[in-house]
């Protein structure tokens, strides 16, 4: 009898969370960095981006969205090549484990980090920068599916992208600039509608812009929707773009995933 692929995936998830929690530097960096950014930006930009919407309010929406990209895509696209170098993947390849179990384990550790990070952002934002939380069940429900879909999409794309860096040492140099540029282009640090049109159009090809927009629809008042480039929140488009990227990412991850560099 083959041991259950799902069960092994969850066992790996538990083990990876344990290993992650024991790496103090990465815990601090991954979980506190967005909060530090919020603290810096929130302290520098005190003004409003539109009547009744503080910069901190706008920024938290963007940071929650990019938190999903950081803990998922960025973390995995850097970690997996390192694990390949260390022989972790080669050893797993020699066991009966299915790659699916490995992916599930990664998704679980990513999801745990995301939930913690998002919780901290919202908590600090509310405590220190007067962040207004959504007040309707409707918006909380939207928040929930955005986090779920966003984290799955981000995880899958991180696994798919992990085939590109040649080795662990170079991975960060390949992956980090992509994420930072996308953050700027997608309206995380600046109000999206004030960016040049070519930047907006480029960003619209990638999921982060849509995730950020979705998070704005959760954290900003509906009156802000008219200031979006499309004149509305475009919720359906957000879901469609994320789903398309998830499907494409799954296809790529299964096709290109490499246990070793040979």
């Amino acid at each position: 009898m083959r041991p259950s692929i799902i069960k092994i995936g969850f066992l790996r998830g538990g083990l990876e969370i344990k290993a992650f929690m024991r790496q103090r530097e990465s815990v601090v960096f991954t979980l506190f960095f967005p909060v530090m950014l919020l603290f810096i930006f929130g302290s520098v930009f005190k003004g409003n981006v539109s009547p009744g919407v503080t910069f901190s309010q706008y920024f938290v929406a963007g940071m929650v969205a990019s938190g999903l990209v950081n803990t998922g895509f960025q973390q995995l696209a850097i970690m997996i090549p390192i694990e390949r170098d260390f022989g972790t993947l080669k050893r797993l390849r020699g066991t009966p484990i299915s790659p699916i179990s490995y992916f599930i384990g990664k998704a679980i550790v990513v999801f745990a980090a995301m939930v913690t990070q998002v919780g901290m952002l919202i908590g600090f934002g509310a405590a220190l920068f007067g962040l207004n939380l959504p007040t309707t069940a409707d918006k909380w429900f939207r928040f929930l599916w955005l986090v779920l879909l966003g984290s799955v999409c981000s995880t899958i794309l991180g696994i798919a992208f992990s085939a590109i860096p040649k080795n662990g040492r170079g991975a960060s140099a390949v992956v980090s600039p992509i994420v930072i540029i996308l953050q700027f282009f997608s309206g995380v640090f600046f109000v999206f509608s004030t960016l040049p049109v070519w930047m907006q159009q480029f960003a619209a090809l990638f999921p982060l812009k849509w995730l950020t927009q979705g998070m704005r629809s959760v954290f900003l008042p509906d009156s802000f929707a008219t200031r979006e480039v499309g004149g509305s929140w475009e919720i359906a488009q957000i879901a469609i773009v994320l789903i398309i990227w998830t499907i494409a990412g799954t296809y790529l991850a299964l096709r290109t995933f490499k246990w070793s560099d040979k």
């Binding site: 344990k18 290993a19 260390f86 022989g87 080669k90 020699g94």
Partner: peptide, 9 residues
């Protein structure tokens, strides 16, 4: 296998 260096933590 030769020289693996995984699961340090």
């Amino acid at each position: 296998l030769q020289s693996t260096n995984d699961s340090q933590d």
